[in-house]
């Protein structure tokens, strides 16, 4: 009762300040443009310290380029070029959340330029390419059709439902893998020694 009066109308300026999301059809893109060469300069300054000079990444930071045809490999390399379906996600994410620790510091044109440079690093455009609002949706990423809806309801749920075995379910059991051999768990010696003290 009465709570249909709560809140107040959002102003156009307020919506504009927060509504920065971009969709695959280009909805939300601002006016502007940027070239591969402009992008290279910005990327080298603002991005390469984590993502590497060529998008190959340092340490465990995300790899942005390369990895073509690795999605069925033993160790897939999932990058913008090899895995991401939509260029809009690149613009949107760089604009809203990068550089890490200095988010939303890039101008619209700078984000176009970095996006163009990331396309170049992934061999998707030539070095004279200029990305703009006008040509943005003409650029498709290679793995756009690589995604399918969640089909667990059809593929898995019937398989994993029904009667279960309760006794004599197999003849024997052997250990095939051991975490202690891998030995990558953080050392918890304090808790261990406390435990053994407790138990006498």
């Amino acid at each position: 009762p009465g709570f249909d009066q709560l809140g107040r109308p959002a102003t156009a300026a307020e919506i504009a300040a927060w509504n920065i999301d971009i969709r695959p059809d280009g909805t939300g893109l601002p006016d502007g443009q940027g070239s591969v060469s402009e992008g290279e300069a910005i990327y080298t300054e603002a991005c390469a310290s984590c993502h590497g000079d060529f998008g190959e990444a340092r340490g465990r930071w995300p790899v942005l380029a390369g990895g073509a045809d690795t999605l069925t490999a033993d160790r897939p390399v999932k990058t913008i070029g090899s895995y991401w379906p939509y260029l809009s996600t690149v613009y949107d994410y760089v604009h809203r959340a990068m550089p890490f620790g200095d988010a939303q510091s890039l101008s619209d044109d700078q984000v176009y330029a970095i996006t163009a440079y990331l396309l170049f690093l992934n061999w998707e455009v030539e070095d004279d390419f200029v990305l703009s609002r006008a040509n943005f949706t003409e650029t498709r990423l290679p793995n756009e059709d690589g995604f399918m809806p969640d089909d667990r309801a059809e593929v898995e749920l019937p398989l994993f439902s029904g009667e279960v075995c309760m006794s004599a379910c197999k003849d024997s059991v052997t250990i095939t893998g051991r975490a202690a051999v891998v030995d990558v768990t953080p050392d918890d010696s304090a808790a261990r020694s406390a435990r053994h003290k407790d138990s006498g």
Binding site: G146, F147, D150, R152
Partner: peptide, 13 residues
């Protein structure tokens, strides 16, 4: 990512 190189999206539950 599945074994055949395709990936499920919107696997919410």
């Amino acid at each position: 990512l599945l074994g055949d190189g395709r990936a499920r999206r919107f696997t919410w539950e």
